[in-house]
């Protein structure tokens, strides 16, 4: 049941990325085709637009959700690929544990950065 649980959340994370990541891609990489969340001109990575998104609590929370989903989905995929290549049982357990640790560290870094960016966008 544990693998079923991991896999089910992997699928749910994948769908979340489809929605949130899709919106992110449209905002930043399809800014000439659809103008989305870029109220200060069509350059999506100009500071004014970036600050506009960083200030908003809604955006900050969705970015944190997207970060979590991508890290979980990506690392589960990486774990699957590495496990399929054939590893010893102890190596498998170490791999799973290290991916959890690295994933959580990166999630914490990303979340703190998002929170700090909210402050920076408001003050700077």
């Amino acid at each position: 049941m544990r693998e079923t649980k991991y896999w089910t959340w992997f699928i749910i994370a994948g769908f979340m990325i489809f929605v949130l990541g899709g919106l992110h891609m449209m905002t930043v990489h399809l800014n000439g085709v659809v103008s989305l969340f870029n109220p200060f001109g069509s350059d999506a990575v100009a500071w004014k637009n970036v600050a506009y998104r960083s200030k908003s609590l809604c955006f900050t929370l969705t970015y944190i959700a997207l970060l979590g989903a991508v890290l979980y989905h990506g690392f589960y995929g990486l774990r699957t690929i590495l496990m399929e290549l054939g590893l010893q049982k102890t190596t498998q357990r170490k791999l799973t544990a290290s991916l959890w640790v690295i994933g959580i560290i990166l999630f914490v870094i990303g979340t703190l950065a998002a929170a700090a960016a909210k402050i920076a966008a408001t003050t700077l």
């Binding site: 049941m1 699957t80 496990m83 498998q92």
Partner: peptide
């Protein structure tokens, strides 16, 4: 079958 090398591979 629902193991780390099971059906989900």
């Amino acid at each position: 079958v629902a193991t780390s090398h099971g059906v989900f591979n």
